[in-house]
């Protein structure tokens, strides 16, 4: 008897909960969840390759580190991009989106990508806006790293570790 009654009660409470649950504010937009579950362009390029620019931004102490790498063709077009991110789901999604957006674009063009666009695309809540800013910074750092590499190789001087330099940027 008790089993039956409690079953009824349990079912009742579940049924009653569901409509309420759907109206709850969402913590993550479905695009964030999608990029988190299936991150695009995960990986690494050889950072010593002269055609690769590496951007490493954030700090472990803050809970976010983003590494974004671009591979640039001779015509200044970004042929490929990869990322690795230590951080929350929104940070992972922001960097995943960033790699998608920079691919196939000119270097000057990607510098115009704004954090607000990324945030809007992912519907990031205010507390997660820094994730999109970090993604913008990562793109800029990667381009800058590539350009310094290019300048240095044309000067023929030895280069410093791109990782450290990028982190300082």
């Amino acid at each position: 008897m008790l089993r039956l009654v409690s079953k009824r009660l349990l079912q009742g409470s579940r049924e009653a909960q569901l409509p309420a649950a759907l109206t709850l504010p969402r913590l993550y937009h479905e695009r964030v969840v999608d990029h988190y579950d299936n991150p695009r362009n995960v990986g690494s390029f050889d950072k010593n390759d002269p055609s690769v620019g590496t951007g490493l931004v954030g700090a472990p102490a803050c809970g976010d580190v983003m590494k974004l790498q671009i591979k640039v063709g001779d015509d200044g077009k970004i042929t490929d991009a990869v990322f690795k991110t230590f951080g929350c789901g929104s940070a992972i999604a922001s960097s995943s989106v960033a790699t998608e957006w920079v691919k196939g674009k000119q270097m000057e063009e990607v510098l115009t990508i704004k954090n607000t666009e990324i945030a809007k695309h992912l519907s990031l809540p205010p507390v997660k806006l820094h994730c999109s800013m970090l993604a913008e910074d990562a793109i800029k750092a990667a381009v800058k790293d590539y350009q310094t590499k290019l300048a240095k190789s044309s000067n023929g001087s030895s280069e410093a570790s791109p990782v450290e330099k990028a982190a300082n940027a």
């Binding site: 976010d64 590494k67 991110t85 230590f86 990782v163 450290e164 982190a167 300082n168």
Partner: peptide
């Protein structure tokens, strides 16, 4: 961890504590 740049660096033998991180 596959996604983590820190894990990759440690596997490469870079000490994370030595890096000057930019604080946000």
């Amino acid at each position: 961890r596959e996604l983590s740049p820190l894990y990759e660096m440690v596997k490469e033998g870079i000490n994370i504590k030595d890096i000057q991180w930019s604080q946000h």
